[in-house]
Nucleic acid binder design. Structure first.
Length: 207
DNA sequence: CTGAGGATAGTCT
DNA sequence: GACTATCCTCAGA
């Protein structure tokens, strides 16, 4: 861990209690951390996407509450983890409880627990080459990120402000010199809204 | 009970 | 850029 991590501060609930676009931008540069029995792993958030409570068909809560998206309706700072094609995606709930907006964390720059992340990622690809994956490929993309950090449905609904198991900290390390914007990746409904944000120039961004 | 669909990623052209 | 494996949830009958 770089020195900056030592002075990192757990993000309070108020951080998440605002519109998802602001949260998505503010999360760039923050540290996503995961502690499990196997050890600590995590890194710097470099890519996010916002999903809006109003007028956003791509938002999972747009057609009301179901068992699957229930945690989206929870307090700001709650984790929303869902599966697509047998892979996991990790979101942070934003705005006051019941609004059901969120930010999808799409990629991190791995900083802590690289061997652990490599082992987790290699496990799925068992049978392929034995070479360890480069840091760049450990957590580039939402499903890869969850695999590297061992995030699955057991963490759906987890309170990120607790500061255990899975949490996010501010960091006084580098901040993005520029935040790039684009349409969200893979969304079939919701148009071309510029709701994807990423650290311009970072090699750890997906695509 | 059945079928459609999905905020992916790996592979091929 | 296109194709698709693969599986869980949900809506509809």
């Amino acid at each position: 861990m770089p020195p900056g991590c030592m002075r990192s501060a757990l993000l309070p609930r108020e951080f998440y209690d605002r519109d998802p676009v602001r949260v998505a931008r503010a999360l760039l540069g923050c540290l996503l951390l995961r502690r499990a029995r196997a050890g600590l792993a995590g890194g710097r958030i470099v890519e996010t996407e916002a999903y809006l409570a109003d007028g956003d068909p791509a938002c999972h809560a747009s057609r009301g509450r179901t068992r699957k998206n229930a945690s989206m309706f929870g307090r700001p700072g709650t984790a929303y983890v869902y599966a697509i094609h047998s892979r996991w995606c990790f979101n942070v709930v934003t705005e006051p409880e019941g609004r059901a907006s969120a930010v999808l964390v799409r990629a991190i720059e791995p900083l802590a627990g690289l061997p652990l992340m490599q082992a987790r990622r290699a496990a799925r690809q068992a049978g392929r080459d034995d070479a360890a994956l480069p840091a760049r490929d450990l957590a580039r993309g939402p499903a890869r990120l969850c695999e590297a950090l061992a995030i699955d449905r057991r963490l759906d609904g987890w309170d990120l402000t607790r500061g255990t198991r899975l949490w996010i900290s501010a960091d006084d390390g580098p901040r993005p010199a520029a935040i790039a914007t684009s349409a969200r990746i893979g969304v079939t409904s919701g148009g071309e809204l510029p709701l994807r944000f990423y650290w311009a120039g970072s090699p750890f961004v997906s695509r």
